[in-house]
Design a protein around this nucleic acid. Structure first.
Length: 783
RNA sequence: GGAGGCAUAGUCUAAUGGUAGGACGGCGCCUUUACACGGCGCAAGCCUGGGUUCGAUUCCCUGUGCCUCCACCA
């Protein structure tokens, strides 16, 4: 074996070997039980950082463990290139807009561009040692994903789970599209809170006086002593003159403004809630571009209209005062425009009636950690609207739908036509309702969650040629906690509707990888740590060591010192391997030595405990046990056996090699490179496997546990530690010779081992002077 | 505003109903044939207040601080 371990060389070599030998390949012919993982497809946005390494490593620990437990592991990878971040990236890199080049062409460009990033991403993931089978790669804009999404829509339609309805929608007047809640960001703006007198004692403070023509009701809090007398009365709106009713609703904050709120259709989300809850009139006072419709200020922008109406109100004496405020408003993250609420026809997935089922489904999942389950339940209990799935965006997967030009009846595509772009293809049939053959395409596209919610079905090729058997329901969904309410939730909804089953048996929720101060990594904060330079410097195993330290579900800050510890651990493993390689033999006789039996017993206990931790998805716990054991193995056991190796005692070769092999295997999911390199050097020849990652997990043999040796070993360790302190107090080297050790008390075995480890010429039963704490044994040391 | 998580030496963290283990850093000793990228040792810590208990860092409540998600922002 080489004197020192050079991570870069070994990693380059092993990456190639793993690929060439297909170590991580899913075997579709195998009869072995499948363990399938619904890997999160990272967004193609041009950036990978330690946060990704952190969460993907945690899933990889599980994958590698399961592989060694004999499962046929289905571990795919995907790229999410169907969404705004990718769209923006591709537009920027090519200096184009999706709309100008056309959808088909743009998707081609995305796929080309994605390929570049795929190569970069794949390079990082393979360097990190994520053991996915790259032949299972998918992308969320691919033809397969399009077929799956569109088919899903058709199926939901058969189930009467989709409907189209005119409803208030978050709208960007500049981009002229509906936007999802996720595409909004808060923006602080300066604004004026104007007090407007409707009636003598009905004064309303508003920042949106231009919405007066759209006012349809007035609200006060039911507990508001001062204002509740107005409830049920009719009040006339200044200038526009419509009479509206006053309602009581707890959503009104009596302390804010005057405690009286006007409700217009629509100023904000509360207005929409009230509109729905009280069945209010609908007054559309704004067009797609954010221009006012009312004759009073027709064609003006929101801002112009606001100025004009404020002036007029002042002139006519309706304004009692105003106050400058700064408040946050929702704006479109892409262009910064303040969003409005317009009434538009949108497609919805109906699921509000499924709340109880969805809660039940959540109960069927095994959540790791368990407390993450609450977030899922909370989300469902708080749902107020069905899932709006249409977007008036350009880039994405189209709805497989046309509308009859005569009667507006929707016509759905045939399954055999998928994927279909209704803007380019027309239906081959006539309108079922009126017989017309003239159709207009649906121009909207589907929300990206419509596609990403289908990853288990994309993975299993549910509606595609050559569907994969035994993959679904999948075994594991690993993901971070921030998207429980989106990705996890929507996947449960869709997979349940399509398959009647919950899509996985276990859910593994990881935290975020943060910078060293505990802040999220963001390009704009300049705190992004990229994985490859760290791998270059310390090795991939060292980096994975960092990822293996924190408790499941907890965020972890990136500490370089933890990577350094990892590098030291790797180095230590290598050095022990050298020691083992020099001192191993074919000798497999059972040892009667108490220290050997102690070591073997401890190893069995370790296997049992580590396995238990892995089975409960606590890989950090497993890693801790192994690390602790390994360091003790080095510092104690190896010191105990050297005298026998270098002297004439019973050679402990077999135990040494056997125990180290068990440690190595249990380390393998975490440190795949160094463990495999050592395996190939030391053990592969006997076992005949091509990689440690396809060997069997160490076997727990209860009959090897010897209670007596465990007790004795513990005592011996305490005595050793005591003698070490004794030597230290005399500034002696640890290997300095001691003449004599007298032991008084209950210790039958291990005298020779103490003598050997501590270089004591003569260890004998005798009269002790000092008690070794925790042993009940007294000793006397004679220098 | 709602929900959830976290709070342990200078820093990062672990376990635990009977006063705490590790890592980095600090100090000191040891060039021992796997390893000085090492070994051994020393100093240094349980956020505030209340409750349950013979006893709480651990369980419960409260406050405070940090983080995440959701909602609001008339």
């Amino acid at each position: 074996m080489h004197d020192s371990y050079i991570s870069k060389e070994v990693e380059d070599k092993l990456r190639k070997l793993w690929t060439d030998e297909g170590i991580y390949k899913f075997d579709s012919e195998s009869k072995k039980q499948v363990y399938s993982i619904d890997t999160p497809p990272p967004t193609i946005s041009g950036l990978i950082h330690m946060g990704h390494v952190f969460s993907y490593s945690q899933a990889d620990f599980v994958a590698r463990y399961k592989r060694m437990r004999g499962f046929n592991v289905f571990y795919p990878f995907g790229f999410d290139n169907n969404g705004l971040p990718t769209e923006l990236l591709v537009e920027k890199n090519n200096n184009i807009t999706a709309e100008k080049v056309g959808r088909e062409k743009f998707i081609e460009l995305v796929e080309k561009e994605t390929k570049k990033y795929e190569d970069i991403y794949k390079d990082v993931w393979t360097h990190v040692g994520i053991s996915v089978d790259w032949s299972l790669l998918y992308s969320t804009i691919s033809k397969e994903a399009q077929i799956t999404s569109q088919r899903s829509f058709l199926e939901l339609s058969k189930l009467n789970r989709v409907y189209r309805k005119e409803t208030p929608t978050i709208w960007c007047p500049k981009c002229k599209t509906a936007v999802s809640q996720m595409e909004l960001k808060d923006k602080m703006v300066k604004s004026k809170f104007v007090d407007i007198r409707f009636k003598d004692d009905v004064i309303i403070a508003t920042t949106r006086p231009e919405l007066l023509p759209a006012v349809v009701a007035i609200f006060v809090n039911p507990n508001d002593e001062k204002n509740r007398k107005h409830v049920g009365k009719l009040v006339r709106v200044p200038i526009f003159g419509q009479e509206v009713k006053v309602f009581a609703d707890s959503r009104v904050d009596p302390k804010k403004g005057t405690g009286i709120v006007m409700c217009s259709t629509f100023g904000d989300l509360t207005d929409i809630e009230w509109y729905k809850a009280y069945d209010l009139d609908l007054k559309i006072e704004m067009d797609d571009k954010g221009r006012m419709l009312n004759e009073y200020f027709k064609g003006m922008s929101v801002k112009e209209a606001r100025e004009k109406i404020t002036e007029d109100l002042k002139e006519k004496g309706y304004v009692l005062g105003d106050k400058s405020i700064e408040h946050s408003v929702n704006s479109h993250e892409r262009c910064g425009t303040e969003v409005e609420f317009l009434v538009k026809k949108q497609w919805f997935v109906k699921y509000l009636d499924m709340k109880k089922d969805l809660i039940d489904l959540g109960n069927k999942l095994k959540w790791h950690p368990e407390y993450m389950h609450v977030r899922y339940d909370n989300w469902i209990n708080g749902l107020q609207w069905d899932w709006s799935i249409s977007r008036q965006r350009y880039y994405g997967i189209p709805f497989p739908v046309w509308y009859c030009k005569k009667c507006d009846e929707p016509v759905l595509a045939e399954e055999s036509e998928l994927p279909v772009n209704p803007m380019e293809t027309m239906p081959k049939k006539k309108c079922a309702k009126c017989g017309s053959a003239e159709f207009a395409p649906e121009y909207d596209i589907m929300d990206t969650w419509m596609t990403s919610s289908l990853t288990p079905l994309i993975n299993t090729r549910f509606w595609l040629d050559n569907p994969r058997k035994n993959v679904y329901p999948m075994s594991l969904r690993p993901q971070a906690h921030d998207i429980i309410s989106f990705w996890l939730f929507t996947t449960v909804v869709k997979c349940y509707l399509h398959t009647g089953k919950v899509p996985w048996s276990d859910v593994l929720i990881s935290g975020h990888g943060l910078d060293k101060h505990g802040k999220p990594m963001h390009k704009s904060l300049g705190n992004v740590v990229e994985p490859l330079p760290v791998i270059e410097k310390y090795g991939a195993d060292a980096l994975r060591h960092w990822a293996s330290l924190s408790r499941l579900g907890e965020d972890a800050s990136f500490q370089e010192k933890d990577v350094i510890s990892g590098a030291k651990l790797v180095n230590k493993l290598w050095n022990v391997a050298k020691f083992v390689s020099k001192n191993s033999s074919e000798n497999i006789k059972k040892s009667n030595n108490v220290v050997d039996r102690w070591m073997l017993s401890k190893t069995m206990e370790l296997i049992k405990n580590v396995t238990m931790e892995f089975e409960s998805y606590n890989s950090a716990g497993a890693k801790r046990l192994i690390d602790e054991f390994f360091w003790s193995f080095c510092d104690n056991y190896l010191e105990f056996i050297k005298y026998r190796i270098y002297g004439n005692g019973d050679k402990p070769d077999y135990i040494l090699s056997h125990v180290f092999f068990a440690i190595l295997k249990m380390m393998a999911p975490f440190l795949p490179y160094v463990t495999d390199e050592i395996y190939l050097e030391l053990y592969a020849k006997d076992e005949g496997k091509k990689s440690i990652h396809v060997t069997d997990w160490p076997k727990y043999e209860e009959n090897l546990i010897d209670g007596n040796s465990l007790e004795t070993g513990d005592k011996i360790l305490r005595i050793i530690s005591y003698i070490r302190q004794w030597k230290h107090a005399r500034k002696m080297a640890l290997n300095a010779e001691i003449q004599k050790l007298e032991i008084e008390g209950d210790l039958e075995d291990g005298m020779e081992d103490i003598a050997g480890a501590m270089k004591i010429k003569n260890v004998l039963k005798g009269i002790g002077e000092e008690e070794v704490p925790g042993t009940g044994i007294r000793i006397r040391i004679v220098a």
